[in-house]
């Protein structure tokens, strides 16, 4: 379970998160929607400690992410994240990209890591690209590789930050399908997205982010289908 309790976060004078609270239960898929600059990416980075927070707490399965005593590298093994920009390691092949962390972080043998990587890459439909370098892949393929790379750590949670926003429209579908598959397998996911169809179809709950706060949260039928707040309705109008 991810528990976010009254998290505050500023960049200099700019307060990006102004007291965010939310919990994500095991097996749940929560979509986060909201305008540009509202703090969605920042929230995801605070969940796995890539960004420090100023106040509040983030607790993952009872472990306080931002506590001094926490071994953050150990915790991150269990929280996968995929970013908007494709972050393939350009000097490694697709297979090596996915094998690297299991080998060097989890200490798996080469054979073990290769088996895991091959499995995850087949899972996201990249079985025939194992020895290619990322520069030879399309954006959609790179994003699926990034998903496989995160999955190779066998995480309990997956965070997605607008993973389709930088893709050509015809490549969006393949990545969303991969995420649908993950959710149907019971993966716990926090998905920042602008794809309203996806948010409505796949998530258990949708959180609308507005000016650094969660303005409205609830089942998709409510937040997207029948928003209770005028700001939510305005936002939905703007993205349709």
């Amino acid at each position: 379970m991810i528990e976010i309790e009254d998290v505050h976060k500023s960049f200099g004078a700019l307060e990006v998160l102004k007291g965010v609270s939310m919990t994500v239960a095991r097996g749940e898929v929560v979509s986060v929607i909201g305008g540009s600059g509202s703090g969605k990416s920042t929230l995801l980075m605070c969940i796995n400690g890539l960004e420090p927070i100023d106040a509040g707490r983030v607790v993952v399965d009872g472990v306080d992410v931002h506590a001094r005593a926490t071994d953050i590298n150990r915790l991150r093994r269990r929280i996968g994240i995929v970013f908007q920009q494709w972050n393939a390691f350009p000097h490694l092949t697709v297979l090596e990209n996915v094998m690297l962390a299991p080998r060097k972080v989890l200490g798996k043998s080469r054979a073990e890591a290769e088996a895991i990587a091959t499995d995850r890459l087949s899972h996201v439909g990249l079985k025939d690209k194992l020895v290619a370098y990322p520069s030879r892949l399309s954006g959609g393929q790179q994003q699926r590789m990034a998903i496989a790379r995160a999955l190779a750590m066998s995480p309990d949670y997956m965070l997605f930050d607008e993973v389709t926003s930088a893709l050509d429209p015809q490549l969006v579908g393949e990545v969303l399908d991969t995420m649908r598959m993950l959710s149907s397998e019971g993966m716990t996911m926090v998905v920042v997205t602008h794809e309203m169809r996806f948010a409505r179809d796949v998530s258990d709950r949708v959180a609308f982010f507005h000016r650094g706060r969660i303005h409205e949260i609830g089942p998709p039928e409510q937040v997207i289908g029948n928003p209770q707040r005028p700001e939510t309705a305005d936002f939905l109008k703007s993205v349709r």
Binding site: N48, L50, N73, R74, R76, R77, G80, I81, F83, Q85, N87, F89, L100, A101, K104, V105, A146, R149, A150, M153
Partner: peptide
Amino acid sequence: TQTRAARSLGMSAPLAFRL
């Protein structure tokens, strides 16, 4: 973003730098 991606996979800062 390269360092960030490496750190998000649980690599320590020195490991991310080296690999």
